[in-house]
């Protein structure tokens, strides 16, 4: 019906509409990230901050060949794994309960689980500082139980607790999303065939909820390894993680090349995980959150 030039003009409409936003994103987002990749190849003289080499793998080698930095990378990954495990262990039963309770209770519980997300991370961390530090809640409890005292501040444990608290809701929502999709008839079938509640869970519910569990784990792990605020506040300079190094190198030591190289390594690690997440999310009926 429509002639050729008309159709071509129509095809331009979405691009014209989106052009201003696209240009803004290219300038403020794409260009800076690309520049970061270039900067990561620059080597500076650490005392004069002058660039002495433009295209070199120096920063990457510096990071990957030094036991100190590799230790920090390993610690970052280790913290991410532990936090993910904590979120799975504490998240699965809650997600399961959400599918079994009444709609009213579920709505209230959902609200309670999600509401910490809107409270500033810095302030949630301050709460943990009070709980885990000297003269804190844990200290008082340990004293009551006759353990003397407890001060977990500036330890890896504190960082794990703080991060698990922040990313926990993502895990629950993810697991709940796939539990919800299990047809109740499948469960009844298992029961009719003589499976006890435990057997029905391990043979039917758990395998069917794996996509949500995997997607939740990937997202929590990716968010953990690139997190900066919580490790800095609860772990400080004693529990340095990769993002802490990026900050330290950028604002304190002013070695932007090295900072960019560490940031690029973080980018690659999270990029791989997020790609895996997308694949898992696409393959299941997982009704995912905002990250898709």
């Amino acid at each position: 019906m429509t002639d050729e030039p008309n159709r071509r003009r129509r095809a331009l409409v979405p691009w014209l509409l989106i052009a201003p936003v696209l240009v803004a994103f290219l300038i403020v987002f794409a260009a800076p990230v690309l520049l970061l990749l270039l900067t990561s190849l620059e080597r500076i003289n650490p005392s004069t901050f002058v660039v002495i080499e433009r295209f070199t793998a120096y920063n990457y080698l510096k990071f990957l060949l030094d036991g100190f930095y590799l230790g920090i990378l390993w610690r970052t990954i280790h913290i991410g794994l532990v936090v993910t495990a904590v979120c799975v262990v504490l998240g699965y039963p809650v997600a399961l309960y959400l599918t079994r309770c009444g709609p009213r209770e579920r709505a209230i519980l959902m609200l309670l689980i999600i509401s910490p997300l809107v409270v500033s991370i810095v302030i949630r961390n301050l709460g943990w500082l009070i709980i885990l530090g000297r003269r804190g809640l844990l200290d008082a409890l340990a004293g009551l139980l006759g353990f003397g005292g407890a001060d977990l501040l500036r330890t890896e444990t504190a960082v794990v607790i703080g991060l698990a608290h922040i990313f926990y809701p993502f895990m629950v929502l993810s697991i709940y999303g796939s539990l919800q999709n299990i047809d109740p008839a499948v469960m009844r079938a298992a029961a009719n065939l003589g499976a006890g509640p435990w057997r029905a869970f391990s043979a039917v519910t758990l395998p069917l909820s794996m996509p949500g569990l995997i997607a939740g784990s990937l997202i929590v792990f990716a968010l953990c390894v690139s997190s900066f605020v919580t490790p800095a506040l609860l772990g400080g300079a004693r529990v340095k993680v990769a993002a802490y190094l990026v900050w330290e190198q950028t604002l304190q030591l002013l070695d932007w090349g090295f900072a960019s190289a560490i940031a690029t390594i973080l980018l690659i690690v999270t990029g791989i995980i997020m790609y895996a997440y997308k694949r898992v999310a696409e393959r299941s009926w997982f009704a995912g959150g905002v990250f898709q």
Partner: peptide
């Protein structure tokens, strides 16, 4: 959507440098 996927710290220092 990619700003949600990329580590925020990468975007932060990227913009600072740029």
């Amino acid at each position: 959507m990619s700003p949600l996927v990329l580590p925020t710290i990468v975007i932060g220092i990227g913009i600072l440098q740029f």
